[in-house]
Design a protein around this nucleic acid. Structure first.
Lengths: 112, 112
DNA sequence: CAGAATCCAACAGGATACTG
DNA sequence: CAGTATCCTGTTGGATTCTG
């Protein structure tokens, strides 16, 4: 629980730290789609994120990987196949992203 | 609940919409401190956000106000007094920010 | 298919000075 | 106290081309 008197002044940057990790135009959406589908390949994500460029998708995927939120599995095949999945750590973001999503729904659609 | 089969493909941007609103280096921290304390004045926020510049604080506060997440109350006094508070809409972000914060704590401190 | 490399534009954000 | 106004920089992000 968020208890004001107990937290004001201490550990004041857990929120900030979390935001740092998911900052980036596409990161939350990437995580969201991995939460929905369990696994996605590069072009699968590209299709699900209208407007993303290869460069940006690659970059954000790499950062999420470095941060330990997703795994990248490369299969040595032709044509290449690369699968992205959430790590347990990334999976633990689900409640937060879910809360964000529900807030977005309440705001924009209000029960729609 | 986040039910994959029901949501994949529909309403796919509630998360994105939410992220758009809270994107900005200081916005979530501003909201967080308003959640903790109920009200803050300009310099109070400035003190609580180490590193923020007046320009950025002003900018992000204005954007949060435009987005309807906070109120800005100006008292015609000398010296001036301006109070910032969450709107009900902003208050509804509490679960999301709380979830983010708890994730950040689990990650960085793991129960600390 | 899943990128890497290069180049470039836009904007977020910072430093500083000034003000009612 | 609570901002404006300028100026400036770095990062984010896009367009395009090339590759194993």
């Amino acid at each position: 629980m968020l208890t004001p008197s107990a937290l004001d002044g201490r550990k004041r940057c857990a929120v900030e730290a979390a935001m740092d990790v998911i900052n980036g135009k596409w990161k939350v959406m990437i995580l969201y789609h991995l939460m929905l589908t369990g696994m996605q390949r590069f072009n699968g994500l590209k299709r699900r994120l209208p407007g993303v460029t290869q460069r940006m998708l690659t970059k954000q995927l790499r950062e999420l990987e470095e941060e330990g939120l997703i795994t990248r599995t490369v299969y040595a095949e032709v044509p290449p196949r690369v699968e992205y999945r959430l790590t347990p750590d990334g999976e633990e973001l689900r409640p937060a992203i879910d809360a964000l999503r529900e807030w977005g729904i309440r705001r924009g659609l209000d029960g729609g």
